[in-house]
C-alpha cells in the first residue's frame, strides 16, 4: 500500500532525503537535530512504521550511547571540568559534544529507516538509471537474481543430500566444505543460464541504440509544488548556514547559544523543510478519516482525491 508521501514522485523524495542528510551533517545545533528527529519520527509513525522503528531501536541506542560515552573519555578539551576519572579530566564540553554526536548518529539511523521505507529499490533505481544506466541495469539484474538463487540453492541442498553432500550434518569442516560445494553447483548452473539471459538481451536489441527509459512515475501539480517549497526552504536554510548561523559553539569553551531573528528565520524555513512530508501524510490521514465519516456512510468505501490514487497498486 503506498499513499501520502510515499506515493509522490521519486525526485521529491530524493530532494527531501538528500537535503535532510546534508543538514544533519552540516547544521551542528541540538534544536535543529531534535526537530529533524521529530519530523522523521512523525512521518514514520503516520506511515505506520512504529514496529519497524522499535525493532532497530536497541542497536541504534547502543551505537549512539557508545559514542556519547567514548567522547568524554577520550577527549579532554574544554574549560569546565566536571570531575576526574582515572586521573583524566571529564569536561562539560566533551560530554555535550558527545551528546551532540549521539543525536546526530541517531538522526542518521532514523533517516535510513525512513529512507528505506519511502525510497524503495525501484524508485532508487529509477533515479539512479538516469545517471548510470548500465550500473543500474547490472544492479537490477543482481536484485532479481537473489531470490531466484536462494530458491535454487534450496533445491540443490535438497537433491545433493542424495549424494552425501549435506551442509547440515558432520564436522564443522565437512559442513563448510559441503556448503561451498553447494554454492559451486549454483555457480555453474547460474553461469550457464546467464549466457541464455545474455542472448535474450541481445535478441531484444540491447546495445543496438541508445536506450530510453520507461517510467511509471508522473510528476503532478502537487509534486511540483512540494518540490518548489522544499527547494526554497532548503536554500534559505543553507544560505543562513553559510553566513555562520545555526552553529553551536562548544569548543574551546561552551557558550550559550544566542537566538536572534536570523536564527529564527533560519529555523522557521528549516521547520518547513523538515515537516512538509509529515504534514502531507497527516493531511491525507485526516482526509481518509473524515471521508469515512461523512462522504460514504454506506459500507463501500471508495478512494477519493488525487493523492490517494497511487501509481503503484501493490
Amino acid at each position: 500500500m503506498s499513499s501520502g508521501f510515499r506515493s509522490m514522485h521519486p525526485v521529491v523524495a530524493l530532494l527531501y532525503y538528500a537535503g535532510l542528510l546534508l543538514f544533519t551533517l552540516l547544521v551542528f545545533h541540538p534544536l535543529f537535530l531534535a526537530t529533524e528527529i521529530a519530523g522523521l519520527l512523525a512521518l514514520l509513525l503516520l506511515q505506520g512504521q512504529g514496529r519497524q522503528l522499535l525493532r532497530s531501536l536497541p542497536f541504534m541506542l547502543l551505537m549512539a550511547a557508545s559514542v556519547a560515552l567514548l567522547n568524554p573519555l577520550f577527549s579532554h578539551r574544554g574549560a569546565h571540568i566536571l570531575f576526574y576519572w582515572l586521573d583524566q579530566p571529564i569536561t562539560l564540553e566533551a560530554v555535550l559534544y558527545g551528546l551532540m554526536m549521539m543525536t546526530m548518529l541517531l538522526t542518521i539511523f532514523i533517516w535510513f529507516i525512513s529512507y528505506n521505507y519511502t525510497v524503495t529499490t525501484d524508485k532508487f533505481m529509477y533515479l539512479f538509471a538516469a545517471a548510470a544506466p548500465r550500473t543500474a541495469l547490472l544492479t537490477l539484474m543482481a536484485i532479481r537474481f537473489v531470490p531466484l538463487f536462494q530458491r535454487r540453492l534450496r533445491q540443490i541442498t535438497l537433491i545433493q543430500r542424495l549424494r552425501g553432500i549435506d551442509a547440515g550434518t558432520g564436522s564443522l569442516k565437512k559442513r563448510m566444505t559441503d556448503g561451498m560445494t553447494l554454492l559451486k553447483v549454483l555457480l555453474t548452473w547460474s553461469l550457464e543460464e546467464a549466457l541464455q539471459t545474455g542472448d535474450s538481451m541481445t535478441a531484444r536489441g540491447y546495445g543496438s541504440t541508445k536506450r530510453s527509459t520507461y517510467t511509471i512515475y508522473k510528476a503532478d501539480l502537487q509534486d511540483k509544488l512540494v518540490m518548489l517549497l522544499l527547494t526554497v526552504s532548503g536554500v534559505v536554510t543553507l544560505l543562513f548556514w553559510v553566513q555562520g548561523y545555526g552553529k553551536l559553539e562548544i569548543y574551546p569553551r561552551m557558550r550559550p547559544a544566542d537566538f536572534g531573528w536570523q536564527e529564527a528565520v533560519m529555523y522557521g524555513s528549516f521547520c518547513l523543510f523538515v515537516l512538509i512530508p509529515a504534514g502531507l501524510e497527516g493531511k491525507e490521514k485526516w482526509l481518509w478519516r473524515s471521508s469515512k465519516h461523512s462522504n460514504y456512510p454506506s459500507d463501500t468505501l471508495k478512494k477519493t482525491g488525487t493523492r490517494s490514487m497511487s501509481y503503484r497498486s501493490s
Partner: peptide, 20 residues
C-alpha cells in the same frame, strides 16, 4: 564496451556473492 553476456555474468557473480 561490454557485451550483454558479460553484463549478466557480472550480475550473476554479484548475486552469488550476496546470496553466499
Amino acid at each position: 564496451p561490454l557485451q550483454s553476456r558479460e553484463l549478466v555474468l557480472l550480475a550473476v557473480l554479484s548475486a552469488i556473492a550476496a546470496v553466499s
